[in-house]
């Protein structure tokens, strides 16, 4: 390593960078942050800025020889037709419910892996849980279709045991969509929860038990407050993922549960000058989702500080 550094010192670019790095704390921050900053600007901020720009266009792509005309009509169209608002509200309710259900389903799993399972097995258990996520969202959606279809595995089992009323309509409704989405997003809840739960000192839990606190009290007074950061991070991640889901609702959802992201997708998919309206709706959804999550995080952080 030392030889490599000595070798690198021969190059003026390297010398220039190290000299700059040593000059001031601000320069150090600049050098360390420049690549991630460029990455974030290039891959996240720039497309979003382009979308904001397009959302104010009268039409897009702008025809050759014509100047872009600016308008607010694309934003106004969201409020003009109540049906858009219906899909919008449906998305928020659905995302909130699915986020809470994911938390309920995943918390015990994360707790088991972080606190109950022997330390040597934790990595293997985590790998087991993560393994299905190596397969794409589309393939996992089709796996659910095979499971839940009228002639799928679940209905075949119902028929086999002679259950009356078969086949049960399990597919293309809220049930299939909720199950599929929980399956899809559970990893994003699991990892922050596991990280938070794993940090909780076992001695604190043992001390509480020795002092006579029953399991439910230990959970409510120690585990839950100390895993708050994991819960907030997991819920924020899952909510933001669900609110923008497109492919899985298309495959597992039905006519009664069209989400706003699907509506936006349909607007973009139209052959014609529909991009400005699609962009405006995307900005509305992004802004509202970030505000919703921001409010959620602020409330939990304030509550956390209040208790501390």
């Amino acid at each position: 390593m030392t030889r490599l550094l000595i070798h690198l010192r021969r190059y003026s670019v390297y010398r220039g960078l190290t000299d700059l790095y040593a000059r001031s704390p601000l320069a150090r921050v600049l050098i360390v942050c420049i690549v991630p900053l460029l990455w974030i600007i290039g891959t996240t901020v720039a497309p979003l800025a382009q979308m904001v720009l397009v959302s104010f266009y009268d039409s897009f792509p702008v025809r050759e020889g014509e100047a872009a005309r600016w308008t607010l009509a694309n934003y106004a169209s969201f409020f003009e037709r109540p049906l858009y608002l219906t899909a919008f509200m449906r998305s928020f309710v659905f995302a909130t419910v699915v986020t809470l259900l994911t938390l309920l389903v995943v918390f015990p799993i994360a707790y088991y892996i972080a606190k109950v399972a022997p330390r040597g097995r934790r990595t293997r258990l985590l790998l087991l849980v993560i393994a299905p996520f190596w397969v794409s969202e589309i393939i996992r959606s089709f796996a659910w279709i095979v499971m839940l279809a009228n002639r799928g595995a679940v209905n075949s089992f119902f028929s086999f045991i002679g259950m009356p009323g078969t086949p049960v309509e399990l597919l293309y409704n809220n049930f299939s969509l909720t199950i599929g989405v929980i399956y899809l997003t559970s990893l994003y809840m699991l990892l922050p929860l596991y990280a938070a739960l794993e940090k909780i000192d076992d001695n604190v839990l043992e001390a509480a038990a020795n002092l006579g606190a029953p399991a439910w009290r230990r959970f409510l007074r120690i585990v839950l407050p100390l895993s708050r950061d994991g819960v907030v991070a997991g819920c924020s991640l899952v909510f933001l993922l669900v609110i923008g889901l497109y492919a899985m609702p298309q495959l597992l959802g039905g006519p009664g549960n069209t989400l706003f992201a699907t509506t936006i997708g349909q607007i973009f998919a139209k052959a014609g000058a529909s991009w400005p309206q699609g962009s405006a709706f995307s900005i509305i959804l992004t802004g509202a989702a970030l505000a919703y999550v921001g409010l959620f995080v602020a409330i939990f952080q304030r509550r956390g500080r209040g208790r501390a």
């Binding site: 279809a149 002639r151 799928g152 309509e169 293309y172 006519p255």
Partner: peptide, 23 residues
């Protein structure tokens, strides 16, 4: 009559899958 529709499909071949699965 939306409540009567099991699914609005997109790609033409999706209907084959829905017929075969009995949906």
């Amino acid at each position: 009559h939306k409540h009567m529709v099991r699914r609005y499909y997109e790609a033409a071949t999706e209907i084959q899958q829905m017929m075969v699965t009995g949906d």
